[in-house]
Design a protein around this nucleic acid. Structure first.
Lengths: 112, 112
DNA sequence: CCCATGTGCAACCTCCAGATTGCATATTGG
DNA sequence: CCAATATGCAATCTGGAGGTTGCACATGGG
């Protein structure tokens, strides 16, 4: 496993954030994470948008590698794929940590 | 410090992701995290967009609570505020962890 | 005191994300 | 076999995000 260059990692995280930035999509992810794999029809219930809209949103999430689908009869089942989610979380931690360390250095410097 | 209700926490994270979803803004955050506090003019260099565009992006980042500004003479200095960044990262971890645990339960259930 | 530098404001433009509607196509249960 | 259910495909619409331009307004250095 290569260490994955920082820029690529950041860009990957950005695509994840772009996908999660939408309210409907964030809701879908939350539902999937707690409710388990579900069909499009199921995911459409308790939503104020059309099934078509949900389908598009799921496609976007899939594009960011956050979900994957499989067929079960006439249904299309969607489920979460936590890999990218975890990675994006770690990337955020890194950025904020780097900033905090820079702050510390600055503080010490000022004290001298 | 109240534990902050889950929905509010998620919504806050979503607004952070929405801000970080843009390529230019993600770039600004990366620059600020490693390069320290900088003026608008500085942040505009090495960018293919106008200073006005950068200003708007900074305003969006500020709206999500990711950066804060202060004046220094005729300059306006922007710096990172890692609080929301860290929180958003933890939120992602929680979601993916919840999903992973659900997966484990499902696996054990199937084995029985 | 003046000019170069750093910003703020506001009008304006363009494009595409997010949504809808209408119709075609699979599957399944009884 | 047939009607109900679940989804796919495509055309179309629209508001707002992201960008620019032009000009006014501070501030600091020489």
């Amino acid at each position: 496993m290569s260490p994955s260059a920082a820029p690529a990692r950041i860009e990957r995280a950005r695509s994840v954030f772009s996908a999660l930035g939408d309210e409907t999509r964030m809701g879908l992810v939350a539902r999937l994470s707690s409710g388990g794999p579900q069909s499009i029809a199921q995911l459409t219930t308790r939503t104020d948008v059309t099934r078509q809209a949900i389908t598009k949103h799921l496609d976007v999430l899939a594009g960011a590698g956050l979900v994957k689908d499989s067929r079960r009869g006439r249904e299309r089942i969607w489920e979460l794929d936590s890999t990218r989610l975890t990675e994006a979380g770690r990337t955020l931690d890194q950025i904020s940590r780097r900033w905090d360390e820079a702050l510390d250095r600055l503080r010490k410097f000022v004290e001298d």
